[in-house]
Write a protein that binds this DNA or RNA. Structure first.
Lengths: 256, 256, 256, 256
DNA sequence: CATGAATGAGCTTTCATTCAT
DNA sequence: CATGAATGAAAGCTCATTCAT
């Protein structure tokens, strides 16, 4: 079985730092994010496309937008509890009190950072992908997974900070868990199971329990994205190759 | 292809709450941990085996042991930054000042909670598993993965709080990242790659880049464990069946 | 000695809540003002006559009038220091900044609320009462006291909020004490003493030191009014009877 | 009728500042308390007897005692809302945080200042006075009133600050109104009415409604004390003479 | 050793006041 | 004139850490 997109020798141990076969850049010494201390970069790689924060939504003033971006940066960096609103204010270039004009409490600010991103991009985009599935009648499982993985990768890439904050803070805030409850359990899950069933009907997925199939895809996808963007964001990833490798594994394990 | 251990109908939608095909318990209403709000249990399921904290190590006084256990509970519950040393002291049944006899600062306490667990149980047990691989000459990939998954599952089950704290706090503390650097990058990774190469030489794993194989297994394993113990710890998991399903997927994708 | 105006049995303990022999209304459960927690009314009894605030004075715009009324309500309710100018603005239906067009500081607003009421109604009306005394030649002390008490009762009834604010805030603001200095010490007191002397000359008051007589009347009057309007405003007062009872006491103690 | 204790000419207009016939001291320029701006004293006159604050109660540490005294001084001076806990701390000579070891919130501190004083000295001492009435069989009304007025005067003199705070803050705090509810309505009032009835049975008070009699005495007493200690505390009061004058008035109005 | 009272820096939040629109 | 966004000083309160007992 071939792994498309992998150049020959990609994974051989050569010179330079490597982790699990990934070549790492050699530029300086920074703390990664989730990640390991790497002889790495001083900056996170630039986001692809415009940095559409939650404030891109109409109705946010430019100042509120700045507060949101600053809050995202500081919450991601220090964690919610250790972040200080005054640092956020300073980072946003506004007075300390101004933050509270937009968000009555610090916790409101957290929710204001996280909620819009997920509300607008999690369920809706999954719905769009599945609608594509219905209309385009993907010829095989790999094609469907390819769309799914690319789309979610795009999402994490663009909303890296918000995703990171969500990962960090969810265990600590019932309000965030409530958000996932609504988004994942109430909206996403029925759709996901229905999709698996459809794929099984089309003969694209073998007859495992739909829940197992769904969770397996989710685990593999999430595992990759966390690793890709938070554990080793600085590494020399060949994203296409990685995605194809994952698809290979999933198709091998789940395909009919 | 069969999925061993799954009872027929396990995944069909019956009565009672379900998430991704998992039946959830129906006992009350509690917040999970990482997890979604479930019509769930009032208590986390009891740990299997004795609750061996880091303090089980020789040389810890009974008081220090109590401090460590309390710190684990409070750090896991509130997060490091929002946890107060005085609450830890109260939980441990010691005076506020006593905590600082054992650990000079709050951060030392965090490291004291996390470090020993991982130092003693991550690399050493992986080494043991691999040594088993060498000695026992696993007849197939599934057998190896079965040992690996079961062992790591055991680990997370027994050290749930420490693992949870590590997941929550790693992004926020360079000291913890340094710990992973030493454990994972320096100790575990060479061993892992070497193991993949050996399995490929035995004809048990097909010739994908060893790094890809290693990271895929890791992702699937981690994704499952996080889901199993932190996202939906209260659900009615059939662990053996889940493990076998994952092995199926991995063998399908990676096996020769 | 009879107590005119008291109906027989007025003070006997019957059904319903009573305090010091006063029947209290039985409508619900509210906090009084100064007062005790009564099984009382949800609203203060309506003011008699039009609610003439200080702004009834010529030259106040309708907006300034609204600000004054709102300030009175909020200052009375929360106290000056705990009152926020933005709440006053909201209550008045104007923007936060508008308040400061009329009154440069919050304290100016306090003075603007209290001063006009007292400047216009304390000394002038006392002067009018005394002028009445001179012209009408009250035949007895009771008649004079009756006019005095009724008039002051009317005043407190109509300017309840301003009086309440004055009582609450005087101890805390030198500026208000200065106001009393001017009104009471400089204007009222000479007039009061002169009046006592005149009444003594007419044989209506016995020859106690004029200051003692004046302060006694003042104390009894103030004590009644505070009790009547601020401690137990909800009680079922028979004002005429109360006034006659007080006059009885005062005449008994001070009359010739 | 003579007014015992009044020296001849006491109330004549002579040199020096006078208010309602009271000679005022001539020492400097201070703000009074409630009172009018007087050419007055730089300090409140020293309390008679030991300054028994609420902290005289067993179980208060010396530091807590200092905090209470400081809180009393600052609350009385600025009012609760405008008082800052850090000023109280400084005044007490402790660190800012120490205040909150004793009283979890600023409001607790207010209650801690006011409650003990009134709980211990209002109802109990009135009970004692009435018990005296029963045992000693006062020969006339004046003797009873003399004991009552002297005792309450003593109380206000010794607990001037606490009384002042209670007067200032009661309208603003439901918790304080609750305190009066318990002390005055529930405990004191039945006793007071019963006492009036007894005095009427003894032929010492004429048959007015007991509630009227009780409230009249209360009003006159409170009016005097407020005037004496808060409006014009600096004036040259002849307390015995004032009390006798008030007794004269009350006996004249209420006596049989 | 263990205690817990004491510290004081630092936090989030409020709000009187200003000023560009 | 009126607005209300913005300010920033100051508030109440928390808590890691120290140290006399």
């Amino acid at each position: 079985m071939k792994v498309p997109g992998f150049k020959k020798g990609d994974d051989e141990h050569g010179e330079g730092p490597r982790v699990f076969g990934l070549k790492l850049p050699n530029l300086g010494d920074v703390d990664g994010v989730f990640g390991l201390k790497l002889p790495g970069l001083t900056k996170e790689p630039p986001m692809e496309g415009p940095a559409l924060g939650p404030a891109a939504e109409a109705g946010y003033t430019e100042k509120q937008e700045r507060v949101l971006q600053a809050a995202m940066a500081v919450f991601a960096d220090r964690g919610f509890s250790a972040a200080s609103t005054s640092e956020i204010a300073k980072e946003a270039g506004v007075a300390a009190g101004t933050v509270f004009r937009f968000y009555r409490t610090k916790k409101d600010l957290l929710l204001g950072v996280v909620t819009p991103v997920f509300r607008r991009f999690v369920a809706p985009q999954f719905v769009a992908a599945v609608r594509g599935l219905l209309e385009d009648d993907y010829e095989d499982l790999a094609a469907f997974l390819r769309v799914l993985l690319s789309d979610r990768m795009q999402f994490v890439r663009r909303h890296r900070l918000a995703v990171r904050i969500a990962l960090q803070e969810t265990p600590l805030h019932p309000e965030l868990r409530q958000l996932w409850q609504e988004l994942v359990v109430d909206e996403l899950e029925p759709l996901a199971l229905e999709t698996v069933v459809r794929l099984q009907a089309q003969g694209l997925v073998r007859p495992v329990p739909p829940g197992v199939a769904a969770r397996t895809v989710l685990s593999v996808l999430a595992g990759f994205l966390v690793y890709r963007f938070f554990v080793l964001p600085e590494a020399d990833w060949n994203d296409q190759a990685e995605i194809e490798a994952l698809i290979d594994v999933l198709v091998g394990g789940l395909g009919a």
